[in-house]
Write a protein that binds this DNA or RNA. Structure first.
Lengths: 358, 358
DNA sequence: TTGTACGCGTTATCAA
DNA sequence: TTGATAACGCGTACAA
C-alpha cells in the first residue's frame, strides 16, 4: 500500500485548466473569475485536496515544525518536559515531532539527521552514550537553531535550560547528614552525563562541608546509565556487602530510574528505610508519596523546564542570525523530604518542603 | 537563524563540475573517473554533505519513516507501547516519529495531516475526544497504511491490535465479587473511548453473572477522559457520598490515570482499602507493588501490543494493495491481585497472578 | 567520462 | 483572466 495524494496537476487535468489557475483559485487570488474559482474550490473539497507540505518545504525551506530529541519517555520527567514544550509551540502554529534515542549514540545521530531537514529547530537532550557531537556542531554551524535541555554539552555554545543539579544534590546530601548519616553513598546514571557529574559535584561538596571523608567505594556509576534494573542491583549489592563499619547509612540516587530501582532493591531485600539506609533521590515519578515508606525526592521543575527551553528555541527561530550571547537558564529543583530519609522523627509527619527561592 | 544545508549544486559549482557528475560520484557509479570520484567524495566529506531527504521524498514518494499518533506519553502504558513498536521499525531501517494529541480531536487532526505526507505508514490510537474520523478514512482510501492500536475505531476497516478489555474487566469484577463485594462501582475514562466501553461491558456481564442488580449511580464516566485529578475526584465524591446501603464496597477503574487518581483520593480521604472499598484498576504504572496498601491491577501487555501492531503495519507497508482481510489481534491482560482488593485474607501475601493463557 | 534535461508538487513571474 | 515556465534538490535517461 502506498499513499497517493491528490495533486494540483491532477485536478487541473480533470477540470481542463492550467496548473497555475488551479493554484490561484485555491489561494483566493483576485485575478481570477468567480466562476472558475468556485469550480476549483468545490472540486478540491470534494477530493479532500491538501497541498503537499513536502513540496512546500522544498520551495520555501521552512517546515513549520520543530523536533524534540529525547532519551526515553519511559521516564516521567521526560514526558513532563515534553508536555511543557508542546504547549508553547502549539500556540505558535508549529507542529512538534518527537524522536527517541534510547540512550544510544547511533540512534541519536540518525534521529538528528532525520529531523534536521524536516524541522526548523531542535530541542536536544544528549543521550548518555554520546561522546562525539560533531554532527550536531556541524548542523549548528550551518544555521540550525538548537537548544539543549536537561543534559547539556559544553562543546557547543548555544542556549540551554537545566536544573540546578549541583544545588539539588548538595541540599539533599546535606539533609542526609543532618539526619545523622555519616557514610553517604552516591549512585549515579552514566558517568558521561553532564547531569550526573553536576550532581556528584554537589554531593561531594556537601560531604566536604560536613567534614566527611569520602570512601570511593561509596560512589557508583552505571554502565548503561541505569536503564535496566540489574545495573542498579549490581551497584546496590556492592554497597550493601561492604563490611558493617564501611557500609553506607545514607544514599543519594542521581537519576529517576535509579531512584525507583534502588527503592525496589531495598524493599525486596528487606533493608529498612531510613533505619538501615536513608534514601533520597532525584525523581519525578508519580506515586512516590504513597509508597511505604514514602520516598524523599529531589524533584525537578519538569514542565517549567520544557517551557523555558521552548521559549529559547522560539527566540532563535525568530532571530535573523546567530545571537552573539547565549543564555543558560537554571531552575531550582524542589527537595521533598518524606519517610525514606527521615531518621530523626521516623513517625508520620507532614512532608517538609524546601521551596524554590525564585 | 535558518538551516542552510550543502547541496549537490553548490558542490558542483565549487568543483567546476556538472551536477550529475557530482551525484554519480557520490553514488559510486562505474561510469566516472577514479580521480573526479575521489575529488568529489573528499569534498563532500569535508562539507559534511547529506542528501536532502525532502527532495528524495518528493522524487521517490517514500519517506522511510513511520508515524505514531499517541494520546499522551505521560502515561506509562503508552510509552511502553511505543517502546515495543520502535524496536521493530528500527531494525527495518525505518525512522519513527511520534506526535502527541493530548486527547484533543483538533490536535489529532493536525497531527495526522502533518504526518501523512512525511511518513509511509501510521500507527494510531484515537484520542478520546474524537468523534469524526473522516480525515483518517480519506487518507486510508488514498492508500495510506494505517493500523489502530489500543483504542480502535470500528468505522475504519483495517488491522488492529488491542487488549482483551472485556475479559480483563470481567475477571477483575468477578474477583471483587469473589472477595465478597456486592456493590461494585465502575469509573471509566471518556465515554467515547472504545476501550472504556469494552471494559464496561465486561464489568456489567460479571455483575449479571453474579446475580447483582446494577445501580446506575455506580457508573461514572469522566468528561475529559480523566486527564486531571479533579475529574476522578468528582466521581469519587459522588460515589462515597451515597447513602451507606447504596455506597459501593468495590471499585473497578478503567484507565491508568483514573486508577492512580482514585487510589490517591482514597488515601487522601483515609478510606481504607480493601476494608471500606476494594480497589482494582487497569494500570501499567510502575511502583504499584510498593504503595501501601499495594494496588491490585489489570495490567496490559504493553510492549507486546506495540510489537504486534508494528508487525501489522510492516505487513501493510510491504503488501502491494489493500489486503482483502483484516486482522484484529487481541492480547489478554494480566490480573495481578494485591492488598487493595484482598478482603478475605487482608494480611501480607504473595500476589496471586492470573496468568495469560496464550 | 561528462553535462543537459526532466520530473516529483508547489508557487511566483512573466507572457498571452 | 488564464497558461506556460522557472525554481527548490535530487537521480537518472539521454545526448555529447
Amino acid at each position: 500500500m502506498k499513499f497517493e495524494p491528490v495533486t494540483i496537476k491532477q485536478m487541473a487535468r480533470d477540470l481542463n485548466l492550467g496548473i497555475s489557475t488551479v493554484s490561484r483559485a485555491l489561494h483566493d487570488s483576485h485575478e481570477i473569475s468567480e466562476e472558475t474559482k468556485k469550480r476549483v474550490v468545490a472540486y478540491a473539497k470534494k477530493l479532500n485536496y491538501i497541498p503537499n507540505p513536502i513540496a512546500l518545504s522544498l520551495r520555501e525551506k521552512r517546515n513549520k515544525s520543530i523536533g524534540i530529541v529525547i532519551s526515553q519517555f519511559n521516564n516521567p520527567f521526560c514526558s513532563q518536559v515534553v508536555h511543557g514544550m508542546e504547549s508553547s509551540f502549539y500556540s505558535q502554529g508549529y507542529q512538534v515531532s518527537i524522536v527517541q534515542t534510547d540512550e544510544s549514540a547511533e540512534k541519536e545521530m540518525k534521529a538528528i539527521q532525520y529531523l534536521s531537514f524536516r524541522v526548523d529547530g531542535l530541542l536536544v537532550s544528549i543521550s548518555s552514550e554520546t561522546k562525539n557531537i560533531d554532527h550536531l556542531k556541524d548542523l549548528y554551524e550551518k544555521g540550525m537553531p538548537i537548544v539543549f535541555y536537561d543534559r547539556i554539552c559544553a562543546d557547543l555554545q548555544t542556549h540551554m535550560t537545566i536544573s540546578d543539579n549541583y544545588r539539588g544534590a548538595y541540599e539533599a546530601t546535606r539533609h542526609l547528614l543532618d539526619q545523622g548519616c555519616r557514610r553517604v553513598a552516591f549512585v549515579g546514571g552514566a558517568v558521561t552525563q553532564s547531569i550526573v557529574q553536576e550532581r556528584k559535584a554537589g554531593y561531594l561538596q556537601a560531604l566536604e562541608d560536613g567534614g566527611i571523608n569520602v570512601d570511593p567505594k561509596w560512589i557508583h556509576y552505571l554502565p548503561k546509565g541505569g536503564v535496566h534494573y540489574v545495573e542498579t542491583e549490581v551497584a546496590m549489592d556492592r554497597l550493601m556487602r561492604l563490611p558493617k563499619n564501611k557500609r553506607p547509612d545514607g544514599l543519594l540516587t542521581a537519576w529517576d530510574k535509579v531512584t525507583a530501582d534502588a527503592y525496589r532493591y531495598l524493599r525486596r531485600h528487606d533493608i529498612s528505610m531510613p533505619g538501615e539506609l536513608a534514601l533520597i533521590g532525584f525523581s519525578n515519578f508519580p506515586l512516590t508519596d504513597f509508597v511505604s515508606p514514602s520516598l524523599s525526592v529531589v524533584q525537578q521543575q519538569s514542565e517549567k523546564l520544557g517551557e523555558v527551553a521552548a521559549g529559547q528555541l522560539l527566540s532563535l527561530l525568530q532571530s535573523k542570525r546567530k545571537p552573539a550571547k547565549f543564555h543558560t537558564e537554571v531552575l531550582m529543583p524542589e527537595i521533598i523530604i518524606r519517610e525514606s530519609s527521615s531518621k530523626l522523627s521516623s513517625g508520620e509527619k507532614e512532608p517538609l518542603k524546601v521551596k524554590n527561592k525564585d
